[in-house]
């Protein structure tokens, strides 16, 4: 019987930059992003895939990066919260709506919440309140009671063009 592979060389593109690294096979994607690449904007809040603060987009789909191994992301295009703003540093429409509606308090769940919103609106640009709540139900927020987060997404959904 052959020994299982304990580490692997992977190439991923994170927020537009390509990285090639050798990682332990057991390394979670969230730890790879935070510890190996030092992209600390993506947060880590539980160990069971419930809180969603580690959410990122992997090839356009929202993924809880604590529920995926880094080696599973080999060759993937990953977008984190740090890749959302425009090149000139100004906030993208989702970030701006969260600020306008006071949908941010401590800011810890925010990166994951923004990525879940990004994905939701990419699939459903004009969601109902119920669809919004279903879209972010995998992202826990303990500060806002979700009220202003839902309002911010409602405001985005009411716009003609959402994703730039």
């Amino acid at each position: 019987m052959t020994e299982p592979v304990k580490s692997k060389r992977i190439t991923v593109t994170v927020d537009g930059t390509e990285y090639t690294r050798t990682v332990e096979a057991r390394t979670l994607l969230v730890r790879f992003i935070r510890e190996e690449l030092d992209h600390t904007g993506t947060h880590f809040g539980c160990d069971t895939g419930h809180c969603g603060s580690c959410s990122v987009l992997v090839d356009g789909k929202v993924v809880k990066s604590c529920m995926m191994l880094a080696i599973q992301a080999d060759q993937a295009q990953i977008t984190t919260v740090q890749g959302l703003a425009f090149q000139d540093g100004s906030l993208d429409p989702i970030q701006q709506a969260f600020s306008d509606h006071h949908a941010v308090q401590c800011g810890f769940c925010t990166p994951g919440m923004l990525m879940a919103t990004e994905y939701l609106l990419s699939q459903n640009p004009h969601p109902t309140e119920e669809e919004i709540r279903r879209g972010i139900k995998g992202n826990l927020c303990r500060c806002t009671g979700y009220v202003n987060i839902v309002r911010a997404i409602q405001a985005l959904g009411a716009q003609e063009e959402v994703i730039s």
């Binding site: 600390t40 984190t80 800011g107 810890f108």
Partner: peptide
């Protein structure tokens, strides 16, 4: 007045610095 929060921009860009972000 409910002015825009000064904290928001860094938190929305993933530029906040939390305890586990210290190296």
């Amino acid at each position: 007045q409910s002015i825009p929060r000064k904290e928001d921009e860094r938190l929305l860009k993933g530029q906040g610095r939390f305890a586990d972000d210290i190296r």
